[in-house]
Design a protein around this nucleic acid. Sequence first.
DNA 1: GGTCGGCAAGTAGCATGTTACTCTGTTAGA
DNA 2: TCTAACAGAGTAACATGCTACTTGCCGACC
Lengths: 259, 259
Amino acid sequence: MQSSRGGATLTEQVVATIREAILNGKLEPGTLYSVYRMADEIGISRTPVREALLRLADAGMVRFERNRGFRVLRTSVRELQEVFQLRLLLEVPAAYRAAHLADEELRVKVRKELAAMQSAAIGHDENLFMAHDRALHELVLAASQNNKLVNSVRDLRFITMTLGASTVDRSRTLSDIADEHRPLVDAIENRDPNAAATAMHHHIVHTGQLLLEQLIKDGRDSSGLDPKWASSFTADVQFPGSYQIPQPLPNEQVGDSNK
Amino acid sequence: MQSSRGGATLTEQVVATIREAILNGKLEPGTLYSVYRMADEIGISRTPVREALLRLADAGMVRFERNRGFRVLRTSVRELQEVFQLRLLLEVPAAYRAAHLADEELRVKVRKELAAMQSAAIGHDENLFMAHDRALHELVLAASQNNKLVNSVRDLRFITMTLGASTVDRSRTLSDIADEHRPLVDAIENRDPNAAATAMHHHIVHTGQLLLEQLIKDGRDSSGLDPKWASSFTADVQFPGSYQIPQPLPNEQVGDSNK
DNA sequence: GGTCGGCAAGTAGCATGTTACTCTGTTAGA
DNA sequence: TCTAACAGAGTAACATGCTACTTGCCGACC
Protein backbone atom coordinates (compact mmCIF):
# COMPACT_ATOMS: atom_id res chain seq x y z
CA MET A 1 0.00 0.00 0.00
CA GLN A 2 2.08 2.81 -1.31
CA SER A 3 1.27 6.46 -0.86
CA SER A 4 0.98 7.87 -4.33
CA ARG A 5 2.28 11.40 -3.91
CA GLY A 6 4.18 11.86 -7.13
CA GLY A 7 5.93 15.16 -6.69
CA ALA A 8 8.42 14.87 -3.88
CA THR A 9 11.08 12.31 -3.12
CA LEU A 10 10.24 8.87 -1.86
CA THR A 11 11.70 9.73 1.51
CA GLU A 12 9.31 12.63 1.97
CA GLN A 13 6.36 10.47 1.06
CA VAL A 14 7.46 7.93 3.63
CA VAL A 15 7.76 10.63 6.28
CA ALA A 16 4.14 11.56 5.62
CA THR A 17 3.07 7.92 5.59
CA ILE A 18 4.73 7.17 8.91
CA ARG A 19 3.40 10.36 10.48
CA GLU A 20 -0.11 9.30 9.56
CA ALA A 21 0.53 5.79 10.82
CA ILE A 22 1.59 7.23 14.17
CA LEU A 23 -1.38 9.59 14.27
CA ASN A 24 -4.02 6.94 13.64
CA GLY A 25 -2.35 4.43 15.92
CA LYS A 26 -1.17 1.93 13.31
CA LEU A 27 2.28 2.34 14.80
CA GLU A 28 2.00 2.14 18.54
CA PRO A 29 4.43 3.69 21.01
CA GLY A 30 6.71 1.28 22.81
CA THR A 31 6.66 -1.50 20.27
CA LEU A 32 9.92 -2.42 18.58
CA TYR A 33 9.79 -2.14 14.80
CA SER A 34 12.45 -2.65 12.18
CA VAL A 35 13.40 -0.78 9.04
CA TYR A 36 13.60 -4.12 7.18
CA ARG A 37 10.01 -5.11 7.79
CA MET A 38 8.64 -1.62 7.35
CA ALA A 39 10.37 -1.29 3.98
CA ASP A 40 8.92 -4.65 2.96
CA GLU A 41 5.42 -3.64 3.98
CA ILE A 42 5.58 -0.38 2.04
CA GLY A 43 7.19 -2.19 -0.85
CA ILE A 44 10.35 -0.12 -1.25
CA SER A 45 13.96 -0.44 -0.22
CA ARG A 46 15.33 0.24 3.23
CA THR A 47 17.13 3.48 2.42
CA PRO A 48 14.23 5.91 2.07
CA VAL A 49 12.49 4.32 5.04
CA ARG A 50 15.59 4.72 7.16
CA GLU A 51 16.07 8.31 6.03
CA ALA A 52 12.46 9.13 6.84
CA LEU A 53 12.81 7.60 10.29
CA LEU A 54 16.02 9.51 10.90
CA ARG A 55 14.16 12.72 10.25
CA LEU A 56 11.42 11.72 12.65
CA ALA A 57 14.06 10.72 15.18
CA ASP A 58 15.55 14.19 14.87
CA ALA A 59 12.14 15.67 15.59
CA GLY A 60 11.83 13.46 18.66
CA MET A 61 9.09 11.22 17.33
CA VAL A 62 10.98 7.93 17.24
CA ARG A 63 14.20 6.53 18.68
CA PHE A 64 16.63 4.10 17.10
CA GLU A 65 18.20 1.34 19.18
CA ARG A 66 21.33 0.00 17.64
CA ASN A 67 21.01 -3.54 16.32
CA ARG A 68 17.53 -3.81 17.79
CA GLY A 69 15.12 -1.60 15.88
CA PHE A 70 13.24 1.62 16.50
CA ARG A 71 10.37 2.65 18.72
CA VAL A 72 7.71 5.28 18.44
CA LEU A 73 8.25 7.35 21.54
CA ARG A 74 5.54 7.60 24.12
CA THR A 75 5.08 11.27 24.88
CA SER A 76 5.51 11.81 28.59
CA VAL A 77 3.51 14.23 30.68
CA ARG A 78 6.68 16.19 31.15
CA GLU A 79 7.26 16.48 27.42
CA LEU A 80 3.69 17.48 26.71
CA GLN A 81 3.99 20.20 29.30
CA GLU A 82 7.10 21.46 27.54
CA VAL A 83 5.31 21.42 24.22
CA PHE A 84 2.46 23.56 25.49
CA GLN A 85 4.85 25.95 27.16
CA LEU A 86 6.59 26.43 23.83
CA ARG A 87 3.32 26.78 22.00
CA LEU A 88 2.35 29.55 24.39
CA LEU A 89 5.62 31.32 23.81
CA LEU A 90 5.27 31.11 20.03
CA GLU A 91 1.61 30.99 19.06
CA VAL A 92 0.32 33.76 21.30
CA PRO A 93 2.68 36.40 19.88
CA ALA A 94 1.96 34.98 16.43
CA ALA A 95 -1.75 35.53 16.97
CA TYR A 96 -1.03 39.03 18.15
CA ARG A 97 0.94 39.80 15.03
CA ALA A 98 -1.54 38.05 12.73
CA ALA A 99 -4.35 40.26 14.02
CA HIS A 100 -2.13 43.31 13.75
CA LEU A 101 -1.29 42.61 10.11
CA ALA A 102 -4.60 41.03 9.11
CA ASP A 103 -5.75 42.01 5.63
CA GLU A 104 -9.09 41.24 4.06
CA GLU A 105 -7.80 38.03 2.48
CA LEU A 106 -6.73 36.59 5.80
CA ARG A 107 -9.99 37.56 7.46
CA VAL A 108 -11.99 35.83 4.76
CA LYS A 109 -9.88 32.68 4.91
CA VAL A 110 -10.00 32.48 8.68
CA ARG A 111 -13.75 32.89 8.68
CA LYS A 112 -14.10 30.12 6.12
CA GLU A 113 -11.95 27.71 8.11
CA LEU A 114 -13.99 28.29 11.24
CA ALA A 115 -17.18 27.68 9.27
CA ALA A 116 -15.68 24.50 7.82
CA MET A 117 -14.75 23.34 11.31
CA GLN A 118 -18.28 23.88 12.53
CA SER A 119 -19.85 22.04 9.64
CA ALA A 120 -17.39 19.17 10.09
CA ALA A 121 -18.33 19.13 13.77
CA ILE A 122 -22.00 18.84 12.89
CA GLY A 123 -21.21 16.01 10.49
CA HIS A 124 -19.09 14.34 13.18
CA ASP A 125 -16.27 13.98 10.67
CA GLU A 126 -13.32 14.03 13.01
CA ASN A 127 -10.65 13.80 10.33
CA LEU A 128 -12.10 16.67 8.35
CA PHE A 129 -12.48 18.65 11.54
CA MET A 130 -8.85 18.13 12.48
CA ALA A 131 -7.74 19.16 9.02
CA HIS A 132 -9.57 22.48 9.26
CA ASP A 133 -8.42 23.01 12.83
CA ARG A 134 -4.87 22.58 11.61
CA ALA A 135 -5.49 24.85 8.62
CA LEU A 136 -6.85 27.61 10.85
CA HIS A 137 -3.85 27.53 13.14
CA GLU A 138 -1.50 27.48 10.16
CA LEU A 139 -3.23 30.49 8.67
CA VAL A 140 -2.67 32.45 11.84
CA LEU A 141 0.95 31.35 12.10
CA ALA A 142 1.67 32.10 8.46
CA ALA A 143 0.17 35.55 8.87
CA SER A 144 2.81 36.26 11.49
CA GLN A 145 5.28 36.49 8.60
CA ASN A 146 7.87 34.32 10.25
CA ASN A 147 8.50 31.04 8.43
CA LYS A 148 10.78 29.61 11.04
CA LEU A 149 8.06 30.10 13.60
CA VAL A 150 5.56 28.30 11.39
CA ASN A 151 7.86 25.32 11.01
CA SER A 152 8.68 25.13 14.69
CA VAL A 153 5.07 25.12 15.73
CA ARG A 154 4.12 22.56 13.10
CA ASP A 155 6.25 19.94 14.85
CA LEU A 156 4.89 20.91 18.25
CA ARG A 157 1.31 20.67 17.09
CA PHE A 158 2.02 17.26 15.60
CA ILE A 159 3.05 15.96 19.00
CA THR A 160 -0.15 17.37 20.45
CA MET A 161 -2.21 15.65 17.78
CA THR A 162 -0.48 12.34 18.39
CA LEU A 163 -1.78 12.35 21.93
CA GLY A 164 -5.17 13.63 20.93
CA ALA A 165 -5.59 10.42 18.98
CA SER A 166 -4.68 8.05 21.78
CA THR A 167 -6.30 9.85 24.69
CA VAL A 168 -9.82 10.36 23.54
CA ASP A 169 -11.02 13.65 24.85
CA ARG A 170 -14.62 13.19 25.88
CA SER A 171 -14.86 16.40 27.84
CA ARG A 172 -15.37 18.46 24.72
CA THR A 173 -17.45 17.83 21.66
CA LEU A 174 -16.10 18.89 18.30
CA SER A 175 -18.56 21.77 18.39
CA ASP A 176 -17.12 22.87 21.73
CA ILE A 177 -13.66 22.95 20.24
CA ALA A 178 -14.85 24.87 17.22
CA ASP A 179 -16.59 27.42 19.45
CA GLU A 180 -13.38 27.83 21.36
CA HIS A 181 -11.78 29.24 18.22
CA ARG A 182 -14.45 31.86 17.74
CA PRO A 183 -12.90 34.55 19.97
CA LEU A 184 -9.64 34.20 18.06
CA VAL A 185 -11.36 34.52 14.70
CA ASP A 186 -13.42 37.46 15.94
CA ALA A 187 -10.30 39.20 17.18
CA ILE A 188 -8.66 38.79 13.79
CA GLU A 189 -11.77 40.06 12.06
CA ASN A 190 -11.70 43.12 14.29
CA ARG A 191 -7.96 43.48 13.89
CA ASP A 192 -7.61 43.50 17.64
CA PRO A 193 -4.15 42.10 18.45
CA ASN A 194 -4.62 42.07 22.21
CA ALA A 195 -7.84 40.14 21.97
CA ALA A 196 -6.25 37.71 19.52
CA ALA A 197 -3.31 37.07 21.82
CA THR A 198 -5.60 36.60 24.79
CA ALA A 199 -7.89 34.27 22.87
CA MET A 200 -4.99 32.17 21.66
CA HIS A 201 -3.59 32.05 25.16
CA HIS A 202 -6.83 30.78 26.63
CA HIS A 203 -7.24 28.26 23.86
CA ILE A 204 -3.78 26.75 24.29
CA VAL A 205 -3.93 26.73 28.08
CA HIS A 206 -7.34 25.09 28.01
CA THR A 207 -6.37 22.45 25.46
CA GLY A 208 -3.13 21.73 27.26
CA GLN A 209 -4.79 21.48 30.62
CA LEU A 210 -7.38 19.00 29.37
CA LEU A 211 -4.79 16.86 27.61
CA LEU A 212 -2.51 16.81 30.62
CA GLU A 213 -5.34 15.87 32.96
CA GLN A 214 -6.45 13.14 30.60
CA LEU A 215 -2.93 11.75 30.43
CA ILE A 216 -2.57 11.72 34.18
CA LYS A 217 -5.98 10.07 34.59
CA ASP A 218 -4.81 7.39 32.18
CA GLY A 219 -2.12 6.58 34.70
CA ARG A 220 0.77 8.29 33.01
CA ASP A 221 3.58 9.19 35.36
CA SER A 222 3.06 12.81 36.32
CA SER A 223 6.33 13.41 38.15
CA GLY A 224 7.94 16.63 37.05
CA LEU A 225 4.62 18.15 36.21
CA ASP A 226 4.37 21.76 37.21
CA PRO A 227 0.78 22.72 38.05
CA LYS A 228 1.65 26.24 37.03
CA TRP A 229 3.19 25.21 33.72
CA ALA A 230 1.12 27.72 31.82
CA SER A 231 2.47 30.73 33.62
CA SER A 232 5.87 29.60 34.83
CA PHE A 233 7.69 31.33 32.03
CA THR A 234 6.22 34.67 32.82
CA ALA A 235 5.50 36.82 35.79
CA ASP A 236 2.98 35.70 38.36
CA VAL A 237 2.89 39.26 39.48
CA GLN A 238 2.54 41.90 36.84
CA PHE A 239 5.36 44.33 36.54
CA PRO A 240 5.85 47.28 34.27
CA GLY A 241 7.94 47.15 31.18
CA SER A 242 8.50 43.44 30.94
CA TYR A 243 6.89 40.19 29.89
CA GLN A 244 3.40 39.56 31.09
CA ILE A 245 0.71 37.08 30.39
CA PRO A 246 -3.01 37.32 30.60
CA GLN A 247 -3.84 36.38 34.16
CA PRO A 248 -5.99 33.26 34.40
CA LEU A 249 -9.65 34.06 34.66
CA PRO A 250 -11.21 33.20 38.01
CA ASN A 251 -13.20 30.34 36.51
CA GLU A 252 -10.28 28.87 34.61
CA GLN A 253 -9.40 25.64 36.34
CA VAL A 254 -5.68 25.13 36.57
CA GLY A 255 -3.68 22.52 38.36
CA ASP A 256 -6.37 20.81 40.37
CA SER A 257 -5.93 17.60 38.47
CA ASN A 258 -3.53 15.63 40.64
CA LYS A 259 -5.47 15.34 43.84
CA MET B 1 41.24 13.97 8.65
CA GLN B 2 38.62 12.16 10.61
CA SER B 3 37.06 13.43 13.76
CA SER B 4 37.85 10.90 16.43
CA ARG B 5 34.76 11.01 18.61
CA GLY B 6 34.42 7.34 19.49
CA GLY B 7 31.12 7.16 21.31
CA ALA B 8 28.39 8.09 18.89
CA THR B 9 27.59 6.94 15.40
CA LEU B 10 29.63 7.96 12.40
CA THR B 11 26.74 10.05 11.14
CA GLU B 12 26.70 12.15 14.29
CA GLN B 13 30.43 12.73 14.08
CA VAL B 14 30.03 13.88 10.50
CA VAL B 15 27.25 16.28 11.52
CA ALA B 16 29.64 17.87 13.99
CA THR B 17 32.46 17.91 11.46
CA ILE B 18 30.35 19.63 8.82
CA ARG B 19 28.93 22.10 11.32
CA GLU B 20 32.45 23.14 12.23
CA ALA B 21 33.42 23.33 8.58
CA ILE B 22 30.53 25.69 7.96
CA LEU B 23 31.32 27.77 11.03
CA ASN B 24 34.97 28.34 10.18
CA GLY B 25 34.25 28.91 6.53
CA LYS B 26 35.81 25.76 5.08
CA LEU B 27 32.48 25.13 3.43
CA GLU B 28 31.32 28.34 1.85
CA PRO B 29 27.70 29.24 1.13
CA GLY B 30 26.63 29.12 -2.49
CA THR B 31 29.25 26.67 -3.72
CA LEU B 32 28.00 23.36 -5.07
CA TYR B 33 29.46 20.36 -3.23
CA SER B 34 28.84 16.66 -3.65
CA VAL B 35 28.36 13.83 -1.21
CA TYR B 36 30.78 11.70 -3.27
CA ARG B 37 33.73 14.06 -2.92
CA MET B 38 32.98 14.94 0.67
CA ALA B 39 32.88 11.27 1.63
CA ASP B 40 36.20 10.75 -0.14
CA GLU B 41 37.78 13.66 1.68
CA ILE B 42 36.65 12.45 5.07
CA GLY B 43 37.63 8.92 4.12
CA ILE B 44 34.33 7.14 4.74
CA SER B 45 31.43 5.95 2.61
CA ARG B 46 28.70 8.12 1.21
CA THR B 47 25.91 6.92 3.48
CA PRO B 48 26.82 8.59 6.78
CA VAL B 49 27.79 11.77 4.96
CA ARG B 50 24.46 11.86 3.19
CA GLU B 51 22.57 11.16 6.40
CA ALA B 52 24.44 13.94 8.18
CA LEU B 53 23.66 16.37 5.39
CA LEU B 54 20.00 15.37 5.41
CA ARG B 55 19.83 16.32 9.06
CA LEU B 56 21.44 19.67 8.34
CA ALA B 57 19.06 20.14 5.42
CA ASP B 58 16.17 19.56 7.80
CA ALA B 59 17.55 22.25 10.08
CA GLY B 60 17.78 24.63 7.14
CA MET B 61 21.56 24.73 6.95
CA VAL B 62 22.04 23.15 3.52
CA ARG B 63 19.89 22.34 0.54
CA PHE B 64 20.08 19.35 -1.78
CA GLU B 65 19.63 19.82 -5.52
CA ARG B 66 18.68 16.62 -7.23
CA ASN B 67 21.40 15.22 -9.46
CA ARG B 68 23.50 18.31 -8.92
CA GLY B 69 24.82 18.39 -5.39
CA PHE B 70 24.18 20.38 -2.24
CA ARG B 71 24.84 23.93 -1.16
CA VAL B 72 25.44 25.56 2.17
CA LEU B 73 22.66 28.10 2.37
CA ARG B 74 23.49 31.76 2.57
CA THR B 75 21.46 33.17 5.41
CA SER B 76 19.36 36.02 4.11
CA VAL B 77 18.61 39.20 5.99
CA ARG B 78 15.03 38.09 6.15
CA GLU B 79 15.93 34.76 7.72
CA LEU B 80 18.26 36.32 10.24
CA GLN B 81 15.49 38.66 11.26
CA GLU B 82 13.22 35.67 11.79
CA VAL B 83 15.88 33.95 13.86
CA PHE B 84 16.25 36.89 16.21
CA GLN B 85 12.51 37.27 16.52
CA LEU B 86 12.30 33.64 17.61
CA ARG B 87 15.22 34.02 19.95
CA LEU B 88 13.44 36.92 21.60
CA LEU B 89 10.29 34.88 22.00
CA LEU B 90 12.18 31.96 23.54
CA GLU B 91 15.30 33.18 25.29
CA VAL B 92 13.81 36.14 27.14
CA PRO B 93 11.19 34.05 28.97
CA ALA B 94 13.89 31.41 29.52
CA ALA B 95 16.07 34.01 31.22
CA TYR B 96 13.11 35.08 33.31
CA ARG B 97 12.50 31.55 34.46
CA ALA B 98 16.20 30.79 34.97
CA ALA B 99 16.51 33.73 37.35
CA HIS B 100 13.29 32.71 39.07
CA LEU B 101 14.52 29.18 39.68
CA ALA B 102 18.21 29.97 40.12
CA ASP B 103 19.89 27.91 42.83
CA GLU B 104 23.39 28.38 44.18
CA GLU B 105 24.85 25.89 41.70
CA LEU B 106 23.55 27.80 38.70
CA ARG B 107 24.73 31.10 40.11
CA VAL B 108 28.24 29.75 40.59
CA LYS B 109 28.38 28.24 37.12
CA VAL B 110 27.08 31.35 35.42
CA ARG B 111 29.60 33.50 37.26
CA LYS B 112 32.41 31.18 36.19
CA GLU B 113 31.39 31.27 32.55
CA LEU B 114 31.33 35.04 32.51
CA ALA B 115 34.78 35.13 34.10
CA ALA B 116 36.03 32.64 31.51
CA MET B 117 34.60 34.80 28.75
CA GLN B 118 36.39 37.83 30.06
CA SER B 119 39.72 36.08 30.39
CA ALA B 120 39.35 34.65 26.89
CA ALA B 121 38.62 38.18 25.69
CA ILE B 122 41.80 39.46 27.27
CA GLY B 123 43.75 36.63 25.65
CA HIS B 124 42.06 37.41 22.32
CA ASP B 125 41.19 33.74 21.97
CA GLU B 126 38.07 34.03 19.86
CA ASN B 127 37.30 30.31 19.73
CA LEU B 128 37.55 29.92 23.47
CA PHE B 129 35.46 33.05 23.92
CA MET B 130 32.72 31.73 21.66
CA ALA B 131 32.71 28.43 23.52
CA HIS B 132 32.10 30.12 26.85
CA ASP B 133 29.55 32.50 25.33
CA ARG B 134 27.68 29.47 24.07
CA ALA B 135 28.05 27.70 27.43
CA LEU B 136 26.63 30.68 29.30
CA HIS B 137 23.57 30.88 27.10
CA GLU B 138 23.06 27.12 27.36
CA LEU B 139 23.24 27.29 31.14
CA VAL B 140 20.48 29.86 31.20
CA LEU B 141 18.36 27.90 28.75
CA ALA B 142 18.85 24.64 30.59
CA ALA B 143 17.88 26.30 33.85
CA SER B 144 14.52 27.08 32.30
CA GLN B 145 13.72 23.37 32.70
CA ASN B 146 12.38 22.98 29.21
CA ASN B 147 14.46 20.66 27.03
CA LYS B 148 12.56 21.32 23.86
CA LEU B 149 13.26 24.99 24.28
CA VAL B 150 16.96 24.31 24.73
CA ASN B 151 17.11 22.29 21.53
CA SER B 152 15.13 24.80 19.51
CA VAL B 153 17.36 27.67 20.50
CA ARG B 154 20.52 25.66 19.88
CA ASP B 155 19.74 25.52 16.17
CA LEU B 156 18.84 29.20 16.08
CA ARG B 157 22.05 30.21 17.78
CA PHE B 158 24.01 28.10 15.33
CA ILE B 159 22.65 30.12 12.45
CA THR B 160 23.64 33.30 14.26
CA MET B 161 27.14 31.98 14.80
CA THR B 162 27.49 31.06 11.14
CA LEU B 163 27.06 34.69 10.23
CA GLY B 164 29.27 35.91 13.02
CA ALA B 165 32.10 34.07 11.30
CA SER B 166 31.59 35.58 7.86
CA THR B 167 30.60 39.10 8.78
CA VAL B 168 33.36 40.23 11.04
CA ASP B 169 31.89 42.43 13.68
CA ARG B 170 34.37 45.21 14.34
CA SER B 171 31.97 47.39 16.24
CA ARG B 172 32.44 45.43 19.43
CA THR B 173 35.54 43.97 21.02
CA LEU B 174 35.29 40.63 22.74
CA SER B 175 35.45 42.48 26.03
CA ASP B 176 32.48 44.59 24.98
CA ILE B 177 30.48 41.48 24.28
CA ALA B 178 31.47 39.94 27.58
CA ASP B 179 30.43 43.08 29.42
CA GLU B 180 27.11 42.94 27.69
CA HIS B 181 26.40 39.69 29.52
CA ARG B 182 27.08 41.16 32.93
CA PRO B 183 23.57 42.52 33.58
CA LEU B 184 22.16 39.09 32.81
CA VAL B 185 24.56 37.35 35.15
CA ASP B 186 23.93 39.95 37.85
CA ALA B 187 20.19 39.46 37.52
CA ILE B 188 20.55 35.72 37.94
CA GLU B 189 22.82 36.23 40.94
CA ASN B 190 20.18 38.45 42.47
CA ARG B 191 17.40 36.08 41.45
CA ASP B 192 15.66 38.98 39.77
CA PRO B 193 13.58 37.53 36.93
CA ASN B 194 12.45 40.85 35.53
CA ALA B 195 15.97 42.15 35.33
CA ALA B 196 17.13 38.91 33.72
CA ALA B 197 14.42 39.08 31.08
CA THR B 198 15.18 42.71 30.37
CA ALA B 199 18.92 42.06 30.17
CA MET B 200 18.44 39.15 27.79
CA HIS B 201 16.08 41.22 25.69
CA HIS B 202 18.57 44.05 25.32
CA HIS B 203 21.38 41.64 24.59
CA ILE B 204 19.52 39.86 21.79
CA VAL B 205 18.13 43.04 20.26
CA HIS B 206 21.56 44.63 20.30
CA THR B 207 23.34 41.62 18.83
CA GLY B 208 20.66 41.18 16.20
CA GLN B 209 20.67 44.82 15.24
CA LEU B 210 24.44 44.88 14.75
CA LEU B 211 24.44 41.68 12.71
CA LEU B 212 21.58 42.87 10.52
CA GLU B 213 23.25 46.21 9.90
CA GLN B 214 26.52 44.51 9.08
CA LEU B 215 24.80 42.19 6.61
CA ILE B 216 23.06 45.07 4.88
CA LYS B 217 26.29 47.05 4.71
CA ASP B 218 27.88 44.03 3.06
CA GLY B 219 25.36 44.48 0.29
CA ARG B 220 22.98 41.73 1.24
CA ASP B 221 19.49 42.23 -0.10
CA SER B 222 17.48 43.84 2.66
CA SER B 223 14.03 43.61 1.12
CA GLY B 224 11.51 42.26 3.55
CA LEU B 225 13.41 43.66 6.48
CA ASP B 226 11.19 45.13 9.12
CA PRO B 227 12.93 47.98 10.96
CA LYS B 228 10.76 47.17 13.94
CA TRP B 229 11.53 43.44 13.86
CA ALA B 230 12.40 43.43 17.53
CA SER B 231 9.04 44.58 18.71
CA SER B 232 6.70 43.52 15.94
CA PHE B 233 5.52 40.46 17.80
CA THR B 234 4.43 42.38 20.82
CA ALA B 235 2.55 45.49 21.66
CA ASP B 236 3.92 48.85 20.69
CA VAL B 237 1.55 50.30 23.18
CA GLN B 238 1.39 48.67 26.56
CA PHE B 239 -1.89 47.19 27.53
CA PRO B 240 -2.99 45.49 30.69
CA GLY B 241 -3.24 41.78 30.97
CA SER B 242 -1.45 40.77 27.83
CA TYR B 243 1.94 40.34 26.28
CA GLN B 244 4.37 43.16 26.66
CA ILE B 245 8.01 43.73 26.00
CA PRO B 246 10.51 45.97 27.62
CA GLN B 247 10.19 49.24 25.76
CA PRO B 248 13.36 50.21 23.91
CA LEU B 249 15.50 52.57 25.89
CA PRO B 250 15.75 56.07 24.42
CA ASN B 251 19.38 55.57 23.42
CA GLU B 252 18.80 52.18 21.85
CA GLN B 253 19.21 52.65 18.11
CA VAL B 254 16.74 50.64 16.16
CA GLY B 255 15.99 50.66 12.48
CA ASP B 256 18.21 53.49 11.31
CA SER B 257 20.35 51.16 9.27
CA ASN B 258 18.78 51.39 5.84
CA LYS B 259 19.10 55.06 5.00
C1' DG C 1 15.38 -28.23 38.35
C1' DG C 2 18.70 -24.76 37.25
C1' DT C 3 22.60 -22.67 34.91
C1' DC C 4 25.62 -21.98 31.24
C1' DG C 5 27.10 -21.80 26.33
C1' DG C 6 26.61 -21.44 21.81
C1' DC C 7 23.90 -21.17 17.80
C1' DA C 8 20.52 -18.95 14.74
C1' DA C 9 17.74 -15.04 13.72
C1' DG C 10 17.22 -10.27 13.35
C1' DT C 11 18.92 -5.64 13.43
C1' DA C 12 21.17 -0.77 12.83
C1' DG C 13 24.91 1.19 10.83
C1' DC C 14 27.95 1.50 7.19
C1' DA C 15 29.60 0.38 2.35
C1' DT C 16 28.76 -0.21 -2.32
C1' DG C 17 25.97 -0.88 -6.62
C1' DT C 18 22.38 1.10 -9.86
C1' DT C 19 19.41 4.43 -12.12
C1' DA C 20 17.70 8.43 -14.10
C1' DC C 21 18.63 12.84 -14.24
C1' DT C 22 21.34 17.61 -15.12
C1' DC C 23 24.87 20.11 -17.04
C1' DT C 24 28.89 21.03 -20.09
C1' DG C 25 31.39 20.86 -24.01
C1' DT C 26 31.84 19.43 -28.63
C1' DT C 27 30.67 18.50 -33.13
C1' DA C 28 27.61 17.94 -37.14
C1' DG C 29 24.52 20.48 -39.89
C1' DA C 30 22.30 24.87 -41.60
C1' DT D 1 28.28 32.09 -37.53
C1' DC D 2 24.73 29.95 -35.31
C1' DT D 3 21.89 26.03 -33.83
C1' DA D 4 20.97 21.57 -32.30
C1' DA D 5 22.00 16.92 -31.48
C1' DC D 6 24.88 14.14 -28.78
C1' DA D 7 28.22 12.16 -25.77
C1' DG D 8 30.39 12.14 -21.40
C1' DA D 9 31.01 13.30 -16.68
C1' DG D 10 28.96 13.98 -12.37
C1' DT D 11 25.18 13.68 -9.21
C1' DA D 12 21.13 12.67 -5.75
C1' DA D 13 18.05 9.21 -4.85
C1' DC D 14 17.22 4.66 -4.33
C1' DA D 15 18.52 -0.44 -4.00
C1' DT D 16 21.28 -3.86 -2.22
C1' DG D 17 25.38 -6.02 0.14
C1' DC D 18 28.09 -6.53 4.35
C1' DT D 19 29.40 -6.50 9.42
C1' DA D 20 29.29 -6.42 14.18
C1' DC D 21 26.21 -6.49 17.52
C1' DT D 22 21.96 -8.00 20.59
C1' DT D 23 18.69 -11.30 21.86
C1' DG D 24 16.13 -15.50 22.49
C1' DC D 25 16.11 -20.31 22.27
C1' DC D 26 17.62 -24.90 23.01
C1' DG D 27 20.28 -28.37 24.58
C1' DA D 28 24.16 -29.94 27.46
C1' DC D 29 26.08 -30.08 31.83
C1' DC D 30 25.86 -29.48 37.02
